[in-house]
Amino acid sequence: MSSAPARITNDHLSVTVAALGAEIQSIDLSDGRPLLWHGDPAFWAGRAPVLFPIVGRAPGDRIAVNGQTAPMAQHGFARRSLFTRIAADARYCRHELAASAETRALYPCDFRLTITHALDGPRLTIRAEVANEGPTPMPFGFGFHPAFLWPLPGAAGRAHRVVLDNGASPALARLDGGFLPEQRHPSPFDSGVLQLDPAQFAADAMIFPEGAGSGLTYGAEGGPALQFRFENLPHLALWSKPGAPFVCIEPWHGMAARCGGPPDLAARPGTILLAAGASTRFACQITLV
């Protein structure tokens, strides 16, 4: 099928998805106002990359799988790979990336990664399926990395916050040189509520390895807001650049390598070891509320 961006739309939202990385390029309201960051490289050229087969950095930007060591850039190669659109209509599109000689030189596994974007009323659902089509267990990490405008449309000058569904105050981890230390810091959440402040991102991402739950709401006090639900994505990160008009809401299964840790992908925190012939699924639902 065509490599041009797919466009799906309904009475509430309009979404475009590129073949490169199966990455969302835009999420617009029915009146045309954008919700998604537009990828200005002055701050960050990404918009909503898919993270596979690693989340975060690897030591020396190299990973080891089954004794094979190879280069691996931050967040993996899926975000820089051309997917094939295998199905689409007005309300959904599906893209697929399968193992090739090029990917096996970096990651010696026979995988198939399928990403589906679907609209249902004011809800966008992003589903991912990872299949191990090889004869041995397959280690990998997976994550979503969408960036939303901060402030949201119609909310300029108003405080924005992230509210966890579970009302928790999960401990904070800060990267050290791009890697995950054992140290944890006091939570910036107060009974599940985080008032966003650009200064919070001066030390890079805020990572919550445990306890953030499976859902949250991001928005301005009094609205508008976006409600998120996560499936099989137990780790959460929030990221921006000081002064940048976006915030990333990042649900993950897997994280950066530990400080001083080995390059072995299987040793990374949160790594999934998928049995031969098996598959697993992840999902992120985003609802306009």
Results as ranks from 00 to 15, higher is better:
Ser279Gln: 15
Gly270Lys: 01
Arg127Trp: 05
His117Val: 09
Arg174Val: 06
Gly270Val: 02
Gly21Val: 12
Val17His: 03
Ala283Leu: 01
Gln68Tyr: 13
Pro262Tyr: 00
Ile54Val: 15
Leu172Tyr: 08
Cys93Gly: 09
Arg57Tyr: 02
Leu97Cys: 14
Phe189Met: 01
Ala202Met: 12
Leu152Tyr: 00
Gly213Gln: 11
Pro137Cys: 02
Leu106Cys: 10
Gly56Gln: 01
Ala87Pro: 13
Pro224Ser: 10
Ser30Asp: 15
Arg94Lys: 09
Asp61Asn: 15
Ala276His: 10
Arg112Asp: 01
Arg112Met: 01
Pro209Arg: 08
His75Val: 11
Tyr218Ser: 03
Arg158Pro: 12
Ser30Gly: 08
Phe246Thr: 07
Thr271Asp: 06
Ala156Pro: 08
Ala168Glu: 09
Ala283Gln: 02
Thr9Ala: 15
Thr9Pro: 00
Gly67Asp: 05
Pro122Asn: 07
Thr103Cys: 08
Arg174Asp: 01
Phe111Trp: 09
Phe111Val: 10
Pro146Ile: 12
Arg57Glu: 10
Ala155Gly: 10
Gly192Trp: 03
Phe246Asp: 03
Gly223Phe: 14
Pro263Val: 12
Leu106Ser: 13
Ile27Arg: 02
Ile207Gly: 06
Cys259Glu: 14
Arg79Ser: 13
Ala118Asp: 04
Asp31Ser: 12
Phe142Pro: 06
Pro263Ser: 12
Gly154Glu: 08
Leu29Met: 11
Ser169Thr: 13
Leu97Thr: 14
Arg127Ser: 15
Ala118Val: 05
Leu236Cys: 05
Gly277Leu: 08
Val162Lys: 04
Phe230Ser: 00
Val193Asp: 11
Gln200Arg: 14
Thr280Asp: 01
Asp31Gly: 12
Gln195Tyr: 13
Pro262Gln: 10
Phe111Ala: 09
Asn132Ser: 06
Leu236Met: 11
Asp120Gly: 12
Glu23Val: 07
Met255Glu: 03
Asp176Thr: 12
Ala64Pro: 00
Leu149Glu: 00
Ile86Asn: 07
Gly46Glu: 13
Ala256Phe: 02
Phe230Ile: 00
Thr9Phe: 05
Ile126Glu: 14
Leu149Cys: 04
Ala276Arg: 10
Tyr107Gln: 05
Phe179Asp: 00
Glu210Met: 06
Ile27Phe: 00
Ser100Tyr: 14
Gln25Ser: 05
Gly215Glu: 04
Pro71Val: 14
Leu194Met: 08
Gln183Met: 09
Ile249Glu: 00
Ala78Asn: 08
Phe179Met: 11
Phe230Asp: 00
Ser187Glu: 04
Ala58Phe: 14
Pro53Lys: 08
Cys259Leu: 14
Arg281His: 14
Pro34Thr: 04
His253Tyr: 07
Asp110Asn: 15
Thr136Asn: 02
Thr16Glu: 13
Asn66Trp: 01
Ala276Phe: 09
Asn10Leu: 07
Asp110Cys: 14
Gly21Ala: 14
Ala244Tyr: 01
Asp165Met: 11
Pro269His: 02
Gly32Leu: 09
Ala128Phe: 14
